[in-house]
Design a protein around this nucleic acid. Structure first.
Lengths: 335, 335
DNA sequence: TTGAAAGCGTTACCAT
DNA sequence: ATGGTAACGCTTTCAA
């Protein structure tokens, strides 16, 4: 790669001092019209670009933030990342996106790598394995701005999350009101706050309507297609199959959908189904899925905002909750 | 953000010179066992991290590459990016991913931004609007390593693409052999090499089997859901509807699928359909889509490899073609 | 209006 | 074994 032209290079050509070039380029006073003109022309012709590394070094600000997601290739995270990036770009920041493959060990590695890059802050969506948050607390101690988003945790840290309890409650109520009696919950790992909250909302709705809670109808495994598939099949193998399923996640929703279909059962006649997922995916199945629509743009924007607050020196811990909306389609309408 | 500890800081504490610290940290000879021990301990305790910006400045190598994609939130690109990143990480490189929103103007902006960041090379998937490649040729002139991937162009530049002509040909032959006579091609913009190539393969197959080519059956619009929807509806509004559709793209495939369904037509009985798409999406529709499976991992890995070749000084132009495979499912099996 | 020099973090070279 | 210094690109302060 060709070494790019520096202020020094321009200075040499013009036979003046670098500091003069700097002033000329920055539009600062103290340069003659003539000289400034020549400097700008030369800079343009030779494709002069300020070296951000020199700037970073000088100012100690890298204008970069880091993002850690469980799977960048997954629709949901890709969208959130896109919105964070858009917001960052508007504010003159670049993003370095890293992918933990939903593994705790990688997650720690990603964060370490980002710290090494001297990013000014990190937005993290936790892996489904993560239960030990000490590495995050250490970052806090070092005053490194951190925001947890989507999959958060109950630690002293700014977060942006969806209103998981309430949206699961609403979804469950909708299932009950559509006539379902035995409603199953298909969730992620039992230690994930997101799953806990959604399960909580589900149970609350059952209690509210006086429906008996059955442990056999609550399946909390891994967030993976295969886990969702086998858990759903287990549900379908019970003597009395559930009349509806609430899936904690897009992946699990699709897995459940396909498991149901593989058994030749009809949706929604035999089993209704609701999932937390994107409109794009929900519109793809047939019948189309009733789903909990999450505002990914708002999540991305708030995540960046909270990060910037901290970068700008406001170290208070903030929690933003993004609202969701139940979109009713054909996977739950019995009539 | 707390200023991170530098070699100078350690040197001050220990009352020795920075250069000694540097040697100790790098494991170079010329430091007493005792001192080295103390330096390493101190560095660890205080969370010393080498400053990559200082290194970049010194060596002129930023260990960063840039990626430009039309839409990072779209499955296909997200996957390729993931593989490029994985490969980059293995080689000690970080990626800066930018999103052109499939607009030419943004694409140029993304590239400029990456150049400003002094990335060592750029991998670009062109926007569907891009017809003017002069900005790329300028980069070439400046010896900035560039690789085009997925959506490439006929310019003097290394590329990684799928075997678009042949895979479209195979897909069309499959449709013909399944009994379809009137086969439509639903594609992207007419000036995109990828679309041109796929259309070419389609036409070749028709000629091979002696099937009349009908212009009305070739629809090349935008790569967007809405464009695919309306183009498909136009096809369905013709006096004699097509017996099969080959869709140039995942988005268009889904759009076509939904358009067909919205008219109450059966797949594959009334119309068969094949698309270029991912297994994940193809398995989601009902009936499941016959699709052209593209090896995204191979594309990502090759893209990084070709970029590294150039970064390492091998400036020869290389073209890698990644093979595809037709996966037959229920959207085309008439029996 | 322009020049000179220091400093940001690191390393390589030369001197001690 | 250790110290001193220049260099990377840029800005800033002070001096001319």
């Amino acid at each position: 790669m060709k070494k790019s032209v520096s202020q020094r290079d321009i200075a040499k050509v013009l036979g003046v001092n670098v500091s003069t070039i700097s002033r000329a380029l920055k539009g600062l006073p103290g340069v003659s019209q003539d000289l400034r003109q020549k400097v700008l022309e030369l800079a343009d012709e030779n494709g002069y670009r300020p070296n951000p590394f020199a700037m970073s070094l000088r100012y100690g600000a890298t204008r970069m933030i880091g993002i850690v997601v469980p799977d960048i290739a997954y629709n949901h995270y890709a969208h959130i990342v896109k919105w964070i990036e858009e917001e960052a770009k508007k504010n003159g920041y670049m993003c370095i996106v890293t992918d933990s493959s939903d593994k705790y060990k990688n997650e720690v590695g990603c964060v370490k790598q980002l710290i090494n890059m001297h990013v000014e802050g990190i937005a993290i969506c936790l892996s489904q394995e993560t239960v030990d948050f000490t590495y995050l607390e250490r970052l806090q101690t070092d005053n490194i701005p951190i925001v947890l988003f989507d999959r958060v945790a109950d630690i002293r840290c700014s977060t942006v999350s969806f209103n998981d309890v309430e949206s699961a409650r609403q979804a469950t109520l909708h299932l009950i009101d559509s006539g379902a009696k035995r409603i199953a919950f298909l969730g992620g790992p039992n230690q994930m706050k997101q799953t806990i909250d959604r399960k909580h909302g589900y149970l609350e709705a059952l209690r509210e309507r006086g429906i008996t809670i059955r442990k056999r109808l609550v399946k909390c495994g891994q967030i993976s297609f295969n886990s969702g598939l086998s858990d759903t099949l287990t549900l379908l193998d019970q003597p009395e199959i559930p009349g509806a399923i609430l899936a904690d996640n897009g992946l699990l929703s699709i897995a459940a959908f396909q498991a149901i279909r593989s058994r030749g059962l009809r949706i929604p006649e035999d089993i209704a189904i609701i999932g937390f997922m994107s409109d794009w995916v929900s519109g793809m199945t047939y019948p189309r899925m009733t789903f909990i629509k999450q505002n990914l743009k708002e999540m991305g924007q708030n995540t960046f905002k909270l990060l910037m607050d901290q970068i700008r020196g406001d170290l208070s811990v903030k929690h933003v909750v993004v609202n969701t909306r139940l979109n009713v389609r054909e996977s739950t309408s019995k009539i």
